[in-house]
Design a protein around this nucleic acid. Structure first.
Lengths: 347, 347
DNA sequence: CTGAAAGCGCTTACAG
DNA sequence: CTGAAAGCGCTTACAG
């Protein structure tokens, strides 16, 4: 195929001249919706001319005229966070099939950057939004909703039930994690959580508490510590705190793999070993967890599917096919690796 | 800040009416380049009106008129390849500061997808391209070059010296890797390489050979194996091959961390251990290599900087500031971790 | 079934 | 210094 310059250079008018018809006729010939209006002979002639000249629709001109950019804004904390590449790929593959393109914007977890990012996306004329940065109470999202903007939340969600979302089933994952530990013989299970201002932090803490009770185990305040941000460093801090406050704990369940990695550090610093002295469980099952030392037992969900499903949901809204606010919860499963074992006293 | 709808709704004309001037005057007032033409009183009045109505330029309309989209196409194999998130982030942060946006497209390493991807980017009117998918012989890139398209190669480069590029210094990295092994006492060092149709594969193989000679070590054909693709699976295959053909090898240098991970598997399968029996060295130093089992000794370069530098280079071309074809080589350093140790016989 | 016209929201040479 | 006009490349009611 020939790449004939980056800006499209052949215009509708040139194709029209070549085929001896009016530009409007070319436009109709190239649009599957309006193709039927044309005499089949005319259609064939126009199509031949378009092919010959290697005509490509100028998306910018079309967008200005139709007031639709075929573009979707994707707001995420940071693509360098290992959770997001798969999600983004799932989104983009799905959008791509519908001839949509995504414009990605980063907040780096800073709430004060959201509006500026959104504003730039708006300038670019995005038709809808996929937002992975929802706060539990999120006035910005409420506002978008009120204005009828097509928006889908992903991974996290705000309290508003009116905004569609795709999240991971925290309850199922946590329950599986705790059951696994209980079956190994653990009783003094600690929890290192993610910030409570976002739904993942809140949901996983709730799920931990419920899961413990369901397993007939005691939820003790000293064995729960929240992080201020989702990072290895904060995970290590939380791990240290827990080990200092409750030295007899035998397992730490976490809200995130990075926090789990921090707990690895805290356990090692305390002169203990994972999994022999302390079992650790992550959440998200990020890439290469199976390569960690030790391989991390983690709650898994399909990240690519999360992205794909959110994009499909948004496309449905954009095409007017759906108007409800579905809240999809993706199945979570526990992937057992080598960071969990029977507690020391059992040996 | 108020988000007033996703598509920009306040137009230049409305601001003009509000300020009692002609739309052209508003346009001039909002453009720093033409602001100076205006009476300062008029300017102030227009700016006040624009602020009051929360006017945002409609990028699509502006692009159609100016024939510049302020958009750059980024062609990469796959964002799920751990090399790319940092590179992409470096690109986007740099573009962002110049009010450019990136449109990302994926090839999944398939040469036959390049033209279709490029074609879609063209439809979207991108002003330039950053390409991470260069083949050693790359007719598509030659064609783009011939048409005067602004394009920068990243990570890989084609043989054409006329296309600017930002790559990692393979020679320096390889030399450091081999020196490190030689100092530990290794002599029978093997190499598991990346496909030779891309520059990274070619450059790293050449660098390995030169490095070996520079260290006074023998380059033996049985101790060199190429992979068909850069993946853990192919790395394992290459590793097995090497261990079968040259069982007395004591170290494997690789062209990529994923290949190194595959070599971990091959070494384990052979009932040997890393680093006690076989040392392994990666290339790229992807995220979390320090968490692997064992932590991977790898050739490091600044991936974010690679992206940032390529984007800056492209912006310079787009603004007409530069017209040469710089070939930047980023410094590489060896990060020594626990996958390398003295060879067994030395113990 | 096809054409002619209008217009999406900007910018910029051209007047005055 | 500011306005009036043209036009970027499309699509789509409106005629015929």
């Amino acid at each position: 195929m020939a790449i004939s310059g980056l800006m499209p250079k052949v215009t509708l008018r040139e194709v029209a001249e070549h085929a001896g018809v009016h530009p409007a006729t070319v436009s109709r010939a190239l649009n599957p919706e309006t193709q039927g209006m044309l005499n089949s002979e005319t259609l064939a002639r126009v199509l031949a001319a378009a092919r010959e000249l290697n005509y490509q629709t100028n998306t910018i001109a079309r967008s200005l005229r139709t007031q639709r950019s075929l573009t979707v804004g994707v707001l995420i904390p940071d693509i360098m966070n290992p959770l997001f590449p798969s999600i983004v790929r799932g989104i983009e593959d799905t959008l791509d099939r519908a001839d949509y393109t995504s414009l990605i914007a980063y907040t780096d977890g800073r709430v004060d950057r959201v509006d500026a990012r959104l504003s730039r996306l708006r300038q670019r004329g995005v038709d809808g939004l996929i937002v992975a940065t929802a706060q539990l109470r999120d006035p910005t999202l409420e506002e978008l909703l009120a204005e009828g903007v097509a928006v889908v939340q992903i991974n996290r969600r705000s309290t508003s039930k009116a905004i569609p979302s795709v999240t991971a089933d925290a309850a199922g994952g946590m329950l599986a994690a705790i059951r696994h530990l209980a079956e190994l013989g653990h009783e003094r299970i600690a929890y290192a959580g993610a910030p409570l201002r976002v739904s993942t932090g809140r949901a996983r803490l709730d799920a931990f508490r419920r899961g413990m009770r369901a397993a007939g185990l005691e939820v003790v305040a000293e064995r729960i510590e929240q992080t201020q941000s989702v990072s290895v460093g904060e995970g290590a801090r939380a791990g240290r705190e827990l080990l200092a406050r409750a030295p007899d704990l035998t397992a730490i369940v976490t809200a995130n793999d990075l926090i789990a990695l921090g707990c690895y550090d805290a356990v090692a610093e305390a002169g203990r070993s994972c999994p022999d002295d302390v079992s650790v469980i992550g959440f998200n099952d990020m890439p290469f967890t199976d390569r960690f030392d030790p391989p991390l037992t983690s709650v898994h969900f399909d990240q690519y599917e999360m992205g794909a499903s959110a994009a499909a949901m948004l496309l449905r809204r954009l095409s007017g096919e759906s108007s409800g606010a579905p809240r999809v919860e993706l199945e979570t499963t526990l992937v057992v690796r080598a960071s969990t074992a029977a507690p020391p006293k059992q040996r």
